[in-house]
C-alpha cells in the first residue's frame, strides 16, 4: 500500500489535537505506513489565500507538497480545506507547465523544486478506495450503536470534475464508511449544505456564518441523532465551537456532540474516548460521553 505523510494543517494540531491522535491511532491499527511531515505549514487555507493571490497560494501549497515529494510519500490530509488546497494545487501544477515554471521560480529562492511525483489523498477517499466498508469491518471490535448526522463538507467532493468521487447531490460513499462502524447514518434536511465556515466567511462575516450554521443545526436536531460526524476540522470547529456561539446569539440550547470520522473510527477500533480527545470538545454532552464510554468498555 501507498506510503503516506500525515499533513496536519492548522486547526488539527493547534485546536483539535484529538483528531491528530485519533488519526495516528487508527492508521497504526489499520497497518498504514504514515509518518509526520516536519516543517509543514498552513496548506494554505483555500478560502482566504486562493481568494487573495494565486501565485502565493500555489507557492505555499507546493512547498508543502515538495516536503513530501522529498520523502517519496503521498500526502494524507484529514481536512477538506487542506485537501482542496493541496490536491488542486498539485493537479494544476502537474498539468500546466507554465504555472509550474512560474511556481518553481519562487520555490528556487528556498532551494526547492516541484516535480509532480506524488498524490494528495484525503483520509475518507483513502479509506474508501484502499479499504472500503467491507474490509474495514474486519478491524472492528466495538460496533457503535449510534445515530449519526453525517456532514460531508464541500471540498471533499467538489468541484466534482477534479475529485472523481461521483455525483455531489446525494453521495453515499462516506455514509457507507460510517455504517461500517455499526452506526446508522440518518438522513436530514439540507444534509449536503455547507456548514457556513468556508471561503473566509467565518473570519470575515461571522454573523452570516452563524446563521447558516443555525439552519444546519436545526435540521440535524430534527433528525434526532446522537452526534454529528464530519471529515474536516474547519467544519468540526464550526459545528463545535460555533454551536456555543449560536446558542449565545440566538438564545438556543443546542448540545449536539461533534466527531471527526477518525474519532468515530477510533471508537469502533477499540480506543477510548479519552485517547481520541472526544472530551476536549467545546460541546460537553454528558449523556453522549457516558454512552461512548459504555461502548468503549464493551457494556453496550
Amino acid at each position: 500500500m501507498t506510503k503516506l505523510s500525515l499533513f496536519l494543517g492548522c486547526i488539527v494540531p493547534n485546536r483539535y489535537p484529538g483528531i491528530e491522535n485519533a488519526t495516528k491511532l487508527c492508521l497504526q491499527k489499520l497497518g498504514v505506513d504514515a509518518c509526520d511531515l516536519p516543517g509543514a505549514s498552513c496548506c494554505p487555507a483555500p478560502g482566504v489565500f486562493k481568494s487573495f493571490d494565486k501565485a502565493t497560494w500555489l507557492a505555499l501549497a507546493s512547498r508543502n507538497i515538495v516536503l513530501s515529494e522529498r520523502m517519496g510519500r503521498d500526502i494524507l490530509t484529514v481536512c477538506n480545506g487542506c485537501y482542496g488546497s493541496l490536491a488542486d494545487a498539485n493537479m494544476e501544477l502537474k498539468k500546466d507547465p507554465e504555472l509550474r515554471a512560474s511556481t518553481n521560480s519562487y520555490l528556487k529562492e528556498i532551494g526547492m523544486e516541484f516535480k509532480g511525483t506524488i498524490e494528495v489523498r484525503h483520509i475518507i477517499e483513502f479509506l474508501y478506495r484502499e479499504f472500503g466498508p467491507e474490509k474495514l469491518k474486519d478491524y472492528i471490535t466495538r460496533p457503535l450503536d449510534l445515530k449519526v448526522a453525517l456532514h460531508y463538507g464541500c471540498h471533499l467532493i467538489k468541484p466534482s470534475k477534479d475529485r472523481n468521487l461521483g455525483e455531489t447531490e446525494s453521495p453515499v460513499f462516506f455514509d457507507e464508511l460510517v455504517e461500517a462502524t455499526g452506526a446508522k447514518s440518518v438522513d436530514y434536511t439540507d444534509k449536503m449544505m455547507c456548514c457556513g465556515a468556508g471561503g473566509g466567511v467565518r473570519s470575515g462575516h461571522v454573523a452570516v456564518s452563524l446563521e447558516m450554521l443555525e439552519h444546519k443545526l436545526a435540521c440535524i436536531r430534527q433528525a434526532g441523532v446522537d452526534c454529528i460526524v464530519n471529515a474536516c476540522p474547519f467544519c468540526h470547529l464550526q459545528f463545535d465551537r460555533g454551536q456555543l456561539a449560536v446558542n449565545e446569539k440566538f438564545g438556543t440550547d443546542y448540545s449536539i456532540p461533534v466527531l471527526h470520522y477518525s474519532q468515530l473510527l477510533g471508537l469502533t477500533l477499540g480506543f477510548s474516548p479519552g485517547e481520541l480527545g472526544i472530551e476536549q470538545n467545546a460541546v460537553q454532552n454528558i449523556e453522549f460521553l457516558a454512552k461512548v464510554y459504555e461502548i468503549s468498555a464493551g457494556l453496550r
Binding site: 478560502g47 467538489k158 468556508g198
Partner: peptide, 9 residues
C-alpha cells in the same frame, strides 16, 4: 463577493 463560502453548489 466575500459572502460566498466557496461551497461550489
Amino acid at each position: 463577493l466575500w459572502l460566498c463560502t466557496t461551497c461550489y453548489t
